[in-house]
Design a protein around this nucleic acid. Structure first.
Length: 460
RNA sequence: GGAGAGGUGGCCGAGCCGGUUGAAGGCGCACGCCUGCUAAGCGUGUGUGGGGUGUUGAAUCCCACCGAGGGUUCGAAUCCCUCCCUCUCCGCCA
């Protein structure tokens, strides 16, 4: 139904050497040399419309060496065209050698010329290879271009689209969750086990989290998404494909010995499920969802919103990942947003939708909505979902394509993902929303909101 | 971790005692023919990417790509080395 996720034999590649020579990965390197993948942005855009890219980079407050790239591109084209000519010469010489030998005639002259040509080729190749490596490094560090309707600016320029519901009203002073969850949320214990800013739930908090995960996944299932339970570690190549690398290496946990990363989001393994895939057009859209823990070092973020469950090193999340036809991604983005918001509406939580400004967009995103819920105990908005459209950015990096019905060139899919939803902030807000005057929580009332949706006919 | 077998086009699968093999054959797909419809059948075509000439998006030429990287050679899918992945068996273990 979803087509073959990918052909196994094609996508595997060599391991990186112990010290990767560039911030990407060997297979990306190969792709870059062979074609247009590995680059986030269509190479033709870089070449023919560098101004557009320059603006996008600035809007995202990123830095990249676009001018260097352009001059290297210039040099590369000259060099590789020269090498191409020499290879053509060598090919014809080899053919002549073959013909001469078959005719029983001496071929030493042609062999010698071919050998000399080969040496010249090798010389040029040394240069082009170095160029390509540097160019790929730059290409991988160029962020995606924001959509035209994305507001320019930083966090302050985020545009509130709408609000739903109203803040809960109490006839007492509402408490923050860390007071309400004494005994079931024990950061000190987590600190003893792993370190500060980890979560340990027990009792009803642990049960609540599990039930919420189930409930969300069941919702997605009914909405036609296929559930995925992926690995929670991912390779350098995978993390580069979704665009966390090279920029966010310092923000991820890395297993030195194996060069594996603890996934910062389910987006990484679930999107990479289709890396290298050639889908049929009729298989689109592919709609996936899955539960994963998310690991983030949150380097340099201490002291910022760190109280309670707001910012932690490991949190649980249910993620939606969709692959769509390029022409369908805009609508799919709205649809995914509506689906995530629908969860909040079932829970009766006051929320608002933000269209993120360019400076607040993630590296890979072209357009992103944030869903924020109102925390009555802390009296502030908390992000519980980011719903992003990446266009073909990740698909290029991961080489996820489809073949149009009726033949034609393969095209890159568009990828989207969105939290549905992240748990710690949801839990803290629910607890604060369902609190009673005596400091207890109406757990049963909360659970009554978690109605299991009706099963759809087709199991996926 | 040890031993063995593998990795070829959208898919399956030959080639693997080096030289029109970018790669047989099949499937799928596209176009055409045929049958009153459908199915079957027949014919033709059909990889990806880069670069050049050209038209304006018809054509044509060159190059690269048979898991990845390196080596041997005038010439490598074919021989050698390293690595990755898959499968089977053994060991270990939740």
């Amino acid at each position: 139904m979803y087509g073959t996720p990918r052909t196994r034999r094609r996508r595997r590649s060599s391991s990186p050497p112990s010290v990767p020579p560039f911030s990407g990965h060997w297979s990306l390197f190969r792709r870059c040399c062979a074609g247009d993948w590995g680059a986030m942005i269509d190479r033709m855009i870089l070449r023919n419309d560098p101004e557009r890219v320059r603006k996008a980079v600035a809007a995202k407050k990123c830095v990249c060496l676009l001018d260097e790239w352009l001059s290297m591109d210039e040099r590369l084209r000259v060099a590789s065209s020269e090498a191409d000519g020499l290879r053509a010469l060598r090919n014809s010489l080899s053919l002549r050698v073959s013909a001469l030998k078959k005719a029983g005639q001496p071929a030493e002259e042609a062999m010698e010329e071919s050998r000399a040509t080969g040496e010249r080729i090798a010389l040029i190749e040394r240069d082009t290879k170095a160029l390509e490596t540097s160019m790929l490094d730059i290409q991988l560090s160029i962020p995606n271009i924001p959509d035209p309707d994305v507001p320019l600016g930083g966090e302050d320029a985020n545009h509130e689209i709408r609000r739903w519901g109203a803040p809960p009203v109490f006839d007492f002073a509402p408490r923050p969750h860390w007071e309400l969850m004494k005994g079931v949320y024990e950061p000190e214990a987590a600190g003893e086990i792993a370190g500060s800013n980890f979560i340990l739930f027990r009792g009803w908090a642990a049960r609540l989290q599990r039930k919420l995960i189930n409930w969300m996944l069941d919702n997605h299932h009914v909405a036609g998404m296929e559930e995925v339970w992926p690995p929670f570690l991912a390779s350098r190549e995978s993390v580069t494909a979704t665009g966390q690398l090279p920029k966010l290496e310092e923000d991820m946990y890395r297993l030195e010995r194996d060069d594996l990363f603890l996934i910062p989001t389910g987006e990484v393994p679930i999107t990479n499920l289709y890396r290298g895939a050639m889908l049929s057009e009729s298989a689109l859209p592919v709609k996936l969802c899955g539960y994963t823990p998310c690991f983030r070092r949150e380097a340099g973020s201490y002291g910022k919103d760190t109280r309670g469950l707001n910012r932690v090193h490991q949190f649980e999340k249910v993620e939606m990942v969709w692959l769509t036809h390029p022409e369908g991604s805009r609508n799919a983005h709205e649809s995914m947003l509506a689906h995530a918001a629908g969860l909040l509406e079932h829970l009766g939580v006051h929320y608002r939708v933000l269209l993120l400004a360019s400076g607040d967009l993630s590296f890979s995103a072209a357009r992103c909505y944030d869903l924020e819920i109102w925390s009555p105990g802390q009296e502030k908005w908390l992000e519980v979902s980011s719903v992003s459209n990446f266009h073909d950015f990740q698909a290029r990096r991961g080489n996820i394509r489809f073949r149009p019905d009726g033949g034609g060139k393969p095209m890159f899919v568009h990828t989207l993902n969105g939290s549905g939803l992240a748990l710690p902030r949801l839990i803290s807000t629910l607890v604060e929303t369902f609190q009673r005057a005596d400091g207890t929580v109406d757990f049963e009332g909360l659970l009554s909101r978690l109605v299991i949706p009706e099963k759809s006919g087709s199991a996926q």
